[in-house]
Structures are given as C-alpha cells and as structure tokens.
Computed example of a mutant assay.
Amino acid sequence: MTTVAVVGGSGYIGGELLRLLLGHPEVELAAVTSTRLAGRRIDTTHPNLRGHTDLKFVEPDALDKYDAVFLAVAHRTAMRMVPGMVARAGCLVDLSADFRLRDSGVYQRYYDTEHEAPQLLDGFTPGWPERYREQLREADRISVPGCTAMAGMLALYPLAAEGLVEPDVTVDARTGSSGSGAAAGNVNLHAERSGAMRVFAPLRHRHEAEIAQATGLRVRMSATGVEAVRGVQVYCRATAKDNADESTVRQAYRRHYGDEPFVRVVAYRSGGYRYPEPKILSGSNYCDVGFAAEPGQVVAIAALDNLVKGGAGNAVQCLNIRRGWPETTGLGFPGLHPV
C-alpha cells in the first residue's frame, strides 16, 4: 500500500482529501495534521467520516516519511512549509496557491506578498491531468490549480490551443460558500450569505493569472459568491476568429476531451440540462464544459465541484497518474441528482 499524509486536514479541502483517500483501494492514510486540533479525532471535525477511521490529528512536526504528502494549507503558509516537507514526501502534492505561478513577480502582484521560496517555483509540475499527464507520471512535486482556475482553463484551452479566439477574454465566475474555506469569518455566516449574490473580486481575481499562464490569453476575471455551498461555474466570453463557427468549436472540444475520463462536453440544443451546471456535479470529480458560438463570438462555460475536481479530487487524480494506477481509482462517484 502507498502511505500518504495530509497536512492541514481540518479545512474543507483537507476533509475532502480524507474522504477520498479513506476510500482509495491503493492508499493507506497514515497521518493527518492540524496544529489547532492536534490530539482530537478527525471525525469530530469531519462527521461524515464517522465509522471510517480512528485517526487523530497530529502536529506537523510529528510527521514521518511517506510515499506521498498532500499539503492543504493556506497560501503564504505553504511556501514556508514546502522546503521542510520535500524530505518527508516521495511525492509532494500542494493544493495551496504558492507554487501555481511560475513568475514570482506575478505572484507578488496577485497575492500582495513577496514569494519566500522563488527558487522552488520551476520544480513543480502543474496538477492539470488533461494537459500534463505525461509529466505527472514522473513528477515528485505537483501544484494543483485553484478551483475557478481549473474551470476556466478547461473551458478556454481548446479554443486557445487551436487559435479560434482573439487573445482578450473575460471570465465571470460564480462560486459557492465552501470556496471561502472553513475559517472565512463572519461575512460567511449563514445569516450573511443566505440569499446573497456577493461580488467579491470585480477586478484582478487571483485565478485570472493562472488562466492566463495556462492558456496564453489575456484574461480579465471577476467573481461572485452565490448561495450554493459547493460548486463553481465560469462563463468565458471571447471574440471568435473567422474560422470559429459552431461546428469547428465543437470539434475542437471533442478532440481535446473526447477521451478524458473526467471532462464531459455538455452543449445541447434542447433539454433541461443544455449547459454545465455545478449542482449535479456535487461530490464528483467531473468538470463539464460547454459553449455557445455565433459569428464573431464564443461563450465557453464550465462547471465543477470546487472541493473535488477543483481541489482534492484533482489532487488524487494526479497521484493516480504518478503511481501508475488507473486514473479513475477512488474517484468513480458520479454526483447526485436531485440534491
């Protein structure tokens, strides 16, 4: 069995990692850290795991060496921990923002702080299976994209790669409350969030830099918090080039995603579920992508569960590739409907 540890297991992403890893047939979950909750059972924080584990949280300093370590801590914290964690992990999978951007100057612009380990940035392989599958097979350091970034990248990459759109695009993102994390503060209390559609990043959303880096497009992104708990949906508007009619766009998506286990092209002319919807993806590792096209413009749409394909599930998918297991191992849950 492959031994794994989760660093930062008390948050929403950490909890989702635990759920997936405890059900993974090739993995032994050996340790879970939380400085604040050390000594407590993990099922007191993640009650859905009752009956599935007797593990308790431990201090990060108590970690041994493991075949893989998942780092699910906040940005700024991760870049301080990574140098010490490299020696403990055969494969280090970072779910923070600290090693997603290759340019430390871009990181400083979007995160308002200087990167403390810029010498390590080039050593991380992007945790994007649909594009970096071959590199992930031998990667010892993996940086998993952000949730809205993953949706935007999957929506736009086929259009960018095949030269079907002009470079300037806008991305409008909608996200559920779990995207703010388990320690988001009073502004995310139910009394404040319920019924709200809160614009929280009208300019310079942090994930716009990731999408731009991944696609080569000039991206402008905004984000709105909606009442859902889970889910991300992105709506990407681009100017189509002359060769980008509906048939050409559909063929581009099929070429890029036709054989992908976790990306589905959803763009139908009729029916109740014509375009990607995050609600039906809750708990699943799928990202649904769709589009609408007419002369002069293309709108690309993507939806995913921000905690799964937008985080923990994508990280497990990367580990599956790295260890040579079937890519879908431990990730077969299809989502719920109705929910």
Rank of each mutant, 00 (worst) to 15 (best):
D43C: 08
E26T: 07
D54L: 09
E327G: 14
R255N: 14
Q119A: 14
V229P: 04
A300G: 06
G231M: 07
E138V: 10
Y253A: 05
R40W: 12
V232F: 02
A183H: 13
S10Y: 14
P60V: 02
L20M: 03
V58P: 01
G8T: 08
P60S: 01
I301Q: 09
V289H: 02
G84L: 01
A74E: 10
G90V: 04
D61E: 15
A87I: 04
H207R: 11
Y12R: 11
S178K: 14
V289L: 03
F99V: 12
Q108A: 15
L120K: 10
R274T: 03
V316T: 00
R100C: 11
A72T: 01
E246I: 02
Q108L: 07
E277P: 06
S222H: 13
A97G: 09
A38N: 03
R40L: 14
D43N: 02
F124V: 09
R100A: 04
G14C: 08
Y286G: 00
V6I: 15
F291L: 04
A238W: 00
P145N: 02
D305K: 06
G332M: 08
G185Y: 02
P60L: 01
Y111Q: 08
T44G: 01
P25T: 06
G332I: 09
V308H: 14
G90L: 04
D98I: 05
V219C: 13
Y273A: 13
A228P: 05
H256M: 15
R237V: 15
P278E: 06
S282P: 00
A87D: 15
T77Y: 03
V69Q: 09
S10V: 07
A161W: 08
R137V: 03
R269D: 15
G8Q: 11
V226T: 14
C287R: 03
G105C: 03
V82H: 13
A151N: 05
G216T: 01
T248G: 04
H46L: 06
S34C: 11
T35W: 07
V226W: 11
E260A: 15
N306E: 15
L319H: 10
L18R: 05
S222V: 09
L154W: 04
V219M: 13
L55I: 10
G225N: 12
P47Q: 04
A160H: 07
E26S: 13
G271T: 02
G225W: 07
A149E: 08
A62E: 14
V106W: 02
Y111G: 01
R250Y: 05
A139I: 10
S177I: 12
A244Q: 09
L120T: 08
M150D: 10
A78G: 12
T224K: 03
G9L: 01
F57A: 00
G179E: 00
G335W: 07
M150K: 13
P338M: 02
L95N: 10
L29C: 08
T148P: 12
F333G: 03
A149P: 07
E210P: 07
E26D: 11
A252Q: 00
R274E: 11
F262P: 06
Y111N: 05
A267T: 03
V308C: 11
F124K: 10
Q135G: 13
L281H: 01
R100E: 00
A292C: 08
D245R: 11
A30K: 14
M150H: 11
S180R: 14
P145W: 02
